Amino acid sequence: MCSAPAPSAPSAVPMPWPAVLTTARLVLRPVARADVPAVTRLWTDPEVRRHLGGPVAESVVRIRQRRCVGACGVFAVARADDGLITGLVTLGWDARRGETEVSYQFLPEHWGQGYAREAVAAAVDWARGGSPTVIAVTQEANTRSRRLLEAVGLEHVESFVEWDAHQVLYRTAG
Score class of each variant (00 low, 15 high):
A123G: 08
Q65P: 05
A57N: 06
G53L: 13
T40I: 01
S8L: 14
V48K: 07
E118R: 06
T40N: 07
R33K: 14
D82I: 09
R49H: 04
A136D: 08
W111Y: 10
L84W: 04
P108C: 04
V77E: 07
L91I: 11
R146H: 01
A19C: 08
A24W: 00
P46W: 13
P30A: 09
R96T: 11
P37F: 05
V60R: 15
V27D: 02
W17V: 02
A24E: 15
R97M: 12
L42A: 08
S59I: 01
P46Y: 10
R41E: 12
I63F: 08
I135C: 08
R117Y: 00
D94Y: 05
R29N: 05
T40L: 01
S8E: 15
L42W: 06
G83S: 05
A32S: 06
T133W: 14
L84V: 15
F75I: 01
S131H: 06
R147A: 13
S11F: 12
L91A: 11
A6G: 13
S103R: 08
L91H: 02
A78N: 00
W43D: 13
Q113S: 09
E101T: 01
G70H: 11
V31P: 03
Q139G: 12
H51S: 07
Q139P: 00
D81I: 04
P37W: 09
A119G: 01
V89D: 03
A95C: 11
P37Q: 08
I63W: 09
P14M: 02
P132M: 10
V60I: 09
P16Y: 06
P5N: 13
P108I: 01
R62N: 06
S145I: 03
G92W: 06
W93P: 01
A95T: 01
R79G: 04
